[in-house]
Amino acid sequence: MPSETLYTSNPVIEVSHVCTRFGSTVVHEDVNLTIMPGEIFAIAGGNGSGKSTLLREIIGLHEQTEGTIRLFGQDVSGLGEQDAQNVYRRLGVMFQQGGLFSSLTLAENVAVPLKEHTDVSSELIRDIVAMKIATVDLPMDSAGKFPNELSGGMRRRASLARAIVMDPELLFLDEPTAGLDPIIAAGFDDLVLQLKAVLGLTVVMVTHDLDSLWRIADRVAVLGNGTILGVGTMRELAESRDPIIHEYFHGPRGRAAQSQYGVS
């Protein structure tokens, strides 16, 4: 892979020989991944191919059946309470369902990490929170609303605002653009690019959004049949001979996205 050689520093995430089983259901058979700092890494694959599960394993929310996962060079499954907390402070996660605290307002949700992990004055917290809410393009009058009073797309953006409020080094996004209107989705891509440029963060995202994949992903891994079917830039994958990858990127939607962003 040519892009691999571009980086000289240590990988942020190393996934080696991971197997995952739920009872008799085999989700991952042998998954290997290396994610370098500063890249936008996308994980693609069909519904139920185990993308969310892989993400949860990397974050340490679910333990893989076999294999090791290293996050910032530390083995995720062997982390003690204190180490885990230190690791969690360096990453932000946006969950597929939002994961907002339903008893807190949007602004309070976004403020949680700041309140818990720093002793910044409440005035400054309010400023930072307002900033982040504006960054993810949420209207200011939604700040006082509870999650059940927000639309699905607004909940996602709120979740993103909470994930980036501490300016994490590593950002995990599970289907960030699903359920967003096309303008917001494009804005979301811009936002990720901007965050990467300004803060230099590493982004790992699960997505089905072919436009996003073409526009912002530095590298993409396609998950299927329990393994990584292919890793590389979108252009490399578009030329892949693997039938599943081909199907994935050359369906009617794939072609439309490719003709817009791709070369051919």
Binding site: L124, M131, I164
Partner: peptide, 8 residues
Amino acid sequence: MDTGGAVL
């Protein structure tokens, strides 16, 4: 500098 610092 991060966003917090920039806000300040």
